[in-house]
């Protein structure tokens, strides 16, 4: 899809419900500097969602979708889990894969898009939960990194199988007791960020979604690096408030606790030297664009 295709046929435009007219007029397609600050002031690519009230995953979705550098040329690959309940509501192309094989699907899709659209930049982004990424799909996840497939993998880490009642996952913290894991987890939380780095990811970030600026920066970095270098990985802590016994309004506090000093989700970022240099250049380009925009406004 290209942004000039997101138009309504003139002869039928007056029967289209307002939300679609807003999408054409007021969405941020085509603006490479779009970001989380557009949330609430522009037409968002997700509005209604079917997640629980106050679910941090829904916040993560908003920030991720608002920060994609080119949503009109992006295809998401999702997997079974809470995330798969949201994708039908999202105004970005997406594919639902079988549980765990999302990175294999994304590999094929990225190659196919390259053949079909040789002159265009098409971003493929895998977005799956921790069960799909680390347990059931770990093989596919790792193999795509070993093969240096050029796409971004995002893991919404809620540290258990949330929508099936709270079973233990590889990313669950040691000792944690959940409804369907009453004995408590016996081994450590899998260090996925480090595994990603060692498996060939050129850019890795691990963070919570309590700070939208950070989520935006990490996502943009990951996608830009994936275009040029190879696989990238972002692990986002999106706690399941239901399964850890919190109230709707306590998700943010839970994330802030988890990212405080000594917590499981203290912000960490790995990048190769080449990538660091590349990202610095991109930052400077973005700053120059902002400056230009400001002076044009003035």
């Amino acid at each position: 899809m290209s942004k000039d295709k997101i138009k309504i046929c003139e002869d039928l435009a007056d029967i289209m419900p307002p939300e679609y007219q807003d999408l054409v007029e007021d969405a941020t397609y085509g603006d490479q500097d779009r970001g989380w600050k557009d949330v609430g002031s522009s037409k968002e690519l997700i509005e209604q969602h079917s997640l629980c009230a106050g679910c941090p995953e829904s916040i993560a979705f908003r920030y991720v979708l608002a920060s994609l550098p080119a949503p009109e040329d992006t295809v998401f690959v999702g997997s079974t889990g809470c995330t798969s309940l949201v994708f039908p509501h999202v105004a970005v192309q997406n594919i639902h894969s079988l549980f765990g094989n999302q990175n294999a699907i994304a590999s094929g899709l990225h190659r196919a898009l390259k053949v079909r659209f040789p002159d265009k930049v098409k971003d493929v982004v895998v977005l799956a939960g921790d069960g799909a990424t680390v347990d059931i799909g770990l093989d596919m996840t790792l193999q795509s990194w070993f093969r240096q497939e050029k796409f971004t993998t995002i893991c919404f880490d809620n540290e258990l199988y949330a929508n099936t009642g709270g079973q233990e996952s590889g990313l669950m913290q040691k000792g944690f007791v959940s409804k369907m894991a009453p004995v408590g987890k016996l081994f450590d939380k899998v260090r996925l960020a480090e595994i990603a780095r060692e498996s060939g990811c050129h850019y890795v970030a691990c963070l919570t979604v309590s700070k939208p600026n950070r989520v935006e920066k990490a996502l943009k970095n990951a996608i830009l690096v994936a275009r040029e270098f190879g696989p990238t990985f972002i692990q986002l802590y999106t706690p399941c408030i239901l399964e850890i016994g919190k109230q709707s309004m306590e998700g943010l506090d839970e994330m802030k606790d988890a990212e405080s000093i000594g917590g499981r989700f203290v912000y960490k970022e790995y990048a190769t030297d080449d990538v660091k240099k590349f990202l610095k250049e991109k930052d400077e380009e973005a700053k120059a664009r902002k400056k230009e925009k400001k002076s044009a406004k003035a």
């Binding site: 295709k5 997101i6 138009k7 309504i8 046929c9 003139e10 002869d11 039928l12 029967i15 289209m16």
Partner: peptide
């Protein structure tokens, strides 16, 4: 009931179909 293939301006043919439907 016009669907996405004729409501959205994918190409000139879609626009022509929309006109014909109207």
């Amino acid at each position: 009931f016009p669907g996405p293939l004729v409501l959205w301006h994918w190409n000139e043919n879609a626009a022509k179909q929309a006109t014909a439907i109207r």
